[in-house]
Design a protein around this nucleic acid. Structure first.
Lengths: 261, 261
DNA sequence: TCGAAACGCTGCACTGAGTGCCATGAGAGC
DNA sequence: GCTCTCATGGCACTCAGTGCAGCGTTTCGA
């Protein structure tokens, strides 16, 4: 909220690359300098505003909390992702679409590798920041899940599939992202993430080819699993009357082969 | 930390049902009464300790933060899960093992449905508690992922697979758990979670490592869970002839047919 | 049985995050 | 020149969380 609600205060229009208030950037710079020098918890908001040469009250005008200054552009990125998902058409393969959406987040990190690596080291060490990052990531995941829920509406276990796939995509993305950050942002972030997302697509999506969806031999272990929407899962307690199970299986498999819903 | 570090202060032995300090329970009771009456943020720690009739300082002796009082038993549950995973053997199928571990968490919720439902309504409404819950869930996820990373050591993309599967298991578990909580804890929580986890196992679980686990030509698979619950999961590709599925279900459910695997 | 050490509880004082309110000063429009 | 607006700054306040010291009870050893 901090970024999107305060930055585009120009004319009410969320114009691209609207001139950012310099104070915001000054606060971020001062904060990171102090965080890296003496640690996050050892730095007070008063220290930050003193270094930035602004009033303490202004800090909380630009950032709702001290943690927010560490993630200054996630709000915009989340908005971008939401817009990207909303702009898709019904022809898009849903799993691939959310994978592409995840690549947007990677793009934000890759835009400024040095900053991203610094922040990574910070969040890795400070429990409070780790917890805050979780809430940020959670919002991305919810955005993906909401999109998938809509696309899977009517499908049996649609919300379940949406939630699970969204979580898997986020986990794969983060796995690759962190691996890239651990290497000081020197490798090919895109390729790493593509590989990780390929694993998820192999497990859940049926359309193998993606923009970077190269499949390596490593995917062989999960390949061969049926695509999610082609699988029916029925759970029954042992001892359940057979006819009851059969009825559930029957409705699940659908009439003939057209097992929709 | 609060729970596990303060509760088992008996003789160093984490004895079953060790006498809990009554003050801890009194604080939880007072806190929830006030939270439900006037809301979480409208309740101060001073209000809680006043109602419980104890000193303010004692609150922070039992709970490291105000949020912790809302999740009084997660610390113990996390320890249980870690122990459960550590106690497994190399013969366990990894994905199934983490699914069973997730069921432990469900068990904690199901132990006290009324309390769980109240807490659910609370966390749903209060952003701060939602964020805190995320950090709790994250620790569960990390425990599962760490276990899988060990089991997948040497496998190509082992850590990637571990992270993704752990996230999927947690997401499926939470999807089912929340669905159960939304129904006021009245349905069959175990069956709901089993169903959700079945979906994850269908996507990631290796085809039956056990004896007789040969996938049938019809691409339908009946698997018995050796877990405590007497549950049978049927995974079938849509379009499978019904009679074929029924036959497998029959052998799985039937008293004579050894459905174990 | 008595004294000492340990432990649990409490109050007190302090730091720091976050908020509401109001004054001020600069710029835009009339 | 005047006013209206808005960003900023300062002040005071609430509340979470912490360190410390005092105090009562329990326990253990002499």
């Amino acid at each position: 909220m901090s970024s999107s609600s305060t930055a585009p205060r120009r004319g009410g229009k969320a114009e691209a690359a609207a001139a950012k208030p310099p104070m915001r950037d000054a606060l971020v710079a001062a904060a990171f300098r102090l965080f890296l020098e003496r640690g996050y918890e050892q730095t007070t908001v008063d220290d930050i505003v003193a270094l930035a040469g602004v009033g303490r009250r202004s800090f909380f005008r630009y950032f709702p909390s001290k943690e927010d200054v560490v993630f200054p552009d996630h709000e915009r990125c989340l908005a971008d992702m939401t817009a990207f998902l909303a702009a898709g058409s019904d022809d898009d393969e849903p799993v691939r679409r959310v994978c592409d959406a995840a690549r947007l987040v990677l793009g934000m990190y890759a835009e400024n590798p040095a900053f991203s690596v610094q922040r990574y080291r910070l969040t890795k060490r400070v429990p409070g920041l780790r917890a805050y990052e979780l809430s940020v990531v959670w919002r991305y995941e919810r955005a993906l899940a909401e999109y998938l829920r809509e696309r899977f509406a009517g499908r049996r276990d649609g919300t379940l599939q949406a939630d699970v796939i969204a979580a898997a995509v986020v986990a794969a993305h983060n796995n690759a992202l962190r691996s890239w950050l651990r290497s000081n942002g020197e490798g090919d972030a895109g390729a790493t993430v593509d590989h990780a997302l390929g694993f998820v697509q192999a497990a859940f999506g049926h359309a193998p080819a993606g923009p970077g969806g190269r499949r390596s031999g490593a995917d062989a272990e999960v390949r061969g699993k049926a695509a999610a929407e082609d699988v029916v899962v029925v759970v029954a307690r042992r001892g359940t009357p057979l006819w009851q199970v059969v009825r559930e299986v029957e409705t699940a498999l659908g009439p003939g082969g057209s097992a929709r819903n």
